[in-house]
């Protein structure tokens, strides 16, 4: 092998090299600027979009806000009828919907948080690598099922199943509590909608808690085991205990998902118009009511009232999101100290 080529490059080659290098640096620098600009623009666009949405919702709701005021939140009359003979015609209040939204979301969390945490524990700490590799993606796939399909399943499969099994069992065991009243005729209702929401929230909770638990430092888990703790004592005392705020943050993210879901709830909640003590009765939620009535709205005030519902929902979602961020931020600081 001769080495001559390496030692003396012709001068022109060197110059071309320098020019090419300079050109590349210029292109790089321009690419840098374009990338920075595009990223900044995209972020700004997102912020602008939120501002536009809020503006549109608030201005759309204005007629209803000025007519019904803050009482809209708890008034339970929702009467789109325009005929002057009917009492309370064209009067709106979101009391039934706020109640339905809160209660269906609560049911969803009561069911999905323990289940989701259990799945997270299983996938991150108990299952062998191969099984987790199959089950994990499947659970996440559940999140990819369109809500309208979950809703259909809620009508066709879940409602009859609940109606013939869980509803009567709960009524028989805990019937002295007004919330477990006599089961309805179909199984559709607040409870059914809550269970459907739980199914939709579950993959979120399972995925987040799985990552949360998997990131608990190995030294902490070993430390607990080395003290003669069983696996379950280690999980409860160290893993769950040190990730408490993360679990709360995941719960709030799940709540945000449950609060905002419209279609699957519309399909399963039975479109009720009053607050019933029993969870097996029909009801409605903010999101569901908007989905049901916006297209067929008969008056400007009805549309404004639907916008008002949207505004309430937006505020609830923002509060949940901010809460989750505050708690998650705290959890990062706490965990940072651990590591």
């Amino acid at each position: 092998m001769s080495r001559r080529e390496n030692t003396a490059l012709p001068r022109e080659v060197v110059e071309i090299g320098v020019v090419a290098g300079g050109l590349r640096r210029m292109v790089d620098r321009m690419g840098d600027r374009v990338a920075f600009g595009a990223a900044a623009l995209a972020s700004l666009a997102a912020v602008a979009l939120i501002a536009l949405v809020i503006d549109r919702v608030v201005s759309g709701a204005m007629p209803s806000i000025s007519r019904f005021g803050i009482g809209f939140l708890w008034q339970t009359t929702w009467n789109p009828s325009l005929s002057s003979g009917v009492r309370d015609s064209n009067v709106y209040g979101a009391g039934v919907l706020v109640y339905g939204t809160v209660v269906t979301s609560a049911i969803a969390l009561v069911i999905s948080v323990p289940l989701g945490v259990a799945i997270g524990v299983y996938l991150s700490l108990l299952s062998s690598g191969r099984l987790a590799g199959v089950v994990g993606p499947l659970v996440e796939l559940l999140a990819a099922v369109p809500s309208v399909i979950v809703g259909l399943w809620g009508i066709v499969v879940l409602a009859p199943a609940l109606h013939s099994t869980i509803d009567p069992a709960l009524h028989a065991a805990l019937g002295w509590l007004p919330i477990f009243g006599k089961p309805g005729t179909t199984g559709l209702g607040i409870f059914d909608a809550g269970v459907v929401l739980a199914i939709m929230v579950l993959p979120i909770l399972a995925a987040i808690t799985r990552d949360l638990f998997a990131n608990v430092p190995r030294e902490l888990k070993d430390g607990a085991l080395a003290l003669g703790a069983t696996r379950w004592e280690m999980i409860r005392g160290v893993v769950l205990d040190s990730t408490r705020s993360g679990i709360v943050a995941a719960t709030i993210l799940g709540l945000a998902r449950a609060l905002g879901e419209a279609i699957a709830v519309t399909q399963t909640i039975g479109a009720g118009t009053a607050i019933h003590a029993s969870l097996f009765a029909s009801g409605d939620t903010l999101g569901s009511r908007i989905a049901e009535q916006f297209i067929g709205a008969v008056s400007k005030l009805q549309i404004a009232s639907l916008f008002y519902c949207a505004l309430i929902l937006l505020v609830m979602e923002f509060l949940a999101s901010i809460g989750a961020q505050l708690i998650a931020g705290r959890s990062v600081r706490v965990r940072g100290a651990v590591i």
């Binding site: 030294e219 902490l220 430390g223 160290v238 040190s242 706490v334």
Partner: peptide, 12 residues
């Protein structure tokens, strides 16, 4: 009992 290389107190 066992004590590890890096101190591993619980976050308690």
């Amino acid at each position: 009992g066992m004590v590890f290389q890096r101190p591993n107190p619980f976050p308690k």
